[in-house]
Design a protein around this nucleic acid. Structure first.
Lengths: 140, 140
DNA sequence: TTAAGTGCAAATTATTTGCAGTAAG
DNA sequence: CTTACTGCAAATAATTTGCACTTAA
């Protein structure tokens, strides 16, 4: 179980050609160890690592998240002006953003149907399409 | 001309029941004076005001943008992890985000057709739907 | 007159960086 | 061995806040 989690993390790093260092394995295990998609901020991941017994410094968490991102392992989601979120699910898919708690979750991709999309202007190409559905709790 | 720009700004404030103070008029004139939609950051608006002869302090620009937002005059767009953008166009419409220059522009609304959208989970309602089309300049 | 608005400077928060020590290939 | 990685602490950047002063109603 723990073995398998770490194996998954190691494979994930290997797939991107990244060295399996201690910090990277700790963070990768938290990110993809159980194979489910996850949304983290640097802070939340830092706390998760510290909560286990495998602390990683906050600076390294930041650096490592950026590294995973540029290696194509994570996707950056911009949803909150203040915080940056990272998603282990690399495909274009919609997100729910809970304004009350500032948390992020996947929205069911099958339920989004974009029929037509504006074309990229001349000389540009579409890098990604972010769809964020902002939710507020129904008060009335 | 300048008269009309200021009149538009004053009307815009009045519509939201906000006092037409000096700082607000200066900023509102820059935002809606010519009736075109505009995307600003606190910094860019601060510079625009300083570039004219009607300086407004940066802190006040921040406070005023937030105020306009909560008064329903502006819409906050979250697109870049670091900066917050404000849009004078309050309708749900897609944006182009130019990754190279970190600038934002409207994408033609007619060219976006969302056929189906995920439902809000129980107890929540959709506050807004942000569609951001990230562009990178075609290098190849 | 008086509650609301403004500006300054200081505080806060998220993120990045320089650099000396440590570990992976 | 040698280059890349890590962690600390200090630096940076965007934004917010406390408070004394000013202004609109």
């Amino acid at each position: 179980m723990t073995q398998r989690r770490e194996q998954r993390a190691a494979d994930w790093l290997a797939a991107a050609g990244l060295r399996p260092t201690r910090a990277r394995l700790v963070l990768a295990t938290l990110l993809v160890g159980d194979g489910r998609d996850r949304h983290v901020t640097a802070e939340s991941l830092f706390e998760a690592a510290a909560g286990g017994d495998e602390a990683v410094s906050l600076a390294t968490v930041y650096n490592t998240l950026r590294l995973f991102c540029s290696a194509g392992l994570l996707r950056e989601i911009m949803v909150d002006g203040a915080r940056v979120y990272f998603d282990t699910n690399m495909t274009d898919h919609p997100h729910f953003f809970w304004e009350d708690s500032a948390t992020l979750s996947d929205a069911p991709k099958e339920e989004l149907e974009i029929r037509r999309l504006p074309m990229a202007p001349m000389g540009a190409e579409i890098a990604a399409v972010d769809v964020v559905i902002r939710l507020r709790s129904k008060s009335g």
